[in-house]
Amino acid sequence: MLTIQGLSYAYSDRFLFKNLSFHLNPGEVVKISGANGSGKTTLIKILTGILKNYEGKILLDESNNESLKNLSNEIFYMGHKNALKENLTVQENLQHDFRLINSDKKKLESYLEKLNLKEFLLTKISELSEGQKRKIILACCLASNSSIYLLDEPFINLDTESQEIIMEAIDSKILNGASIIFTSHDQNIKNSVELNLNDYKS
């Protein structure tokens, strides 16, 4: 459903990666790996549509869509930064979070429960730990009905118990036909295809 052909991106006249091509089917997982500064975050941002001045083609369903913009509700983007407002409570953040536009409120509740976040609903984000903040976004991710997930370092700062819950949920999402592109240094999702950006240096 997602085809990338000859994608290159230059920052200040230096190519981060060149001639990157891959294909993603529904239910497939791609793990983007590579050394620090190899452009993992940049690649995610390009696929999301945040960065525009790339060369090459990003196609959806082999049609002529230049970017994924037309389907922005079908894409769940989880950035390197959490995009949570520090001086608002968890609940207030979730009420105004645009990542939840296409998602299931009941599922969100149940994941917040499972990840031990329910009791923090009225706590300010600034009082939470980094791992807890990450878990809030992951709960949103799991509750989303999108078909493509672009996750930048999703499992950073997580404890093993939450990791297990999340991995399980992600596996069932994949079985339901969701495709995932994620970056990570150590963690892995079952059956993922690895894409090493070190191979695409100029």
Binding site: I50, K69, K81, A83, L84, K85, F98
Partner: peptide, 17 residues
């Protein structure tokens, strides 16, 4: 500044608002 620093602006661009 705040939206830029905490990544909310990224999200607005991603969502094509």
């Amino acid at each position: 500044k705040e939206d830029f620093d905490d990544g909310s602006l990224d999200l607005f661009y991603a969502k094509d608002f």
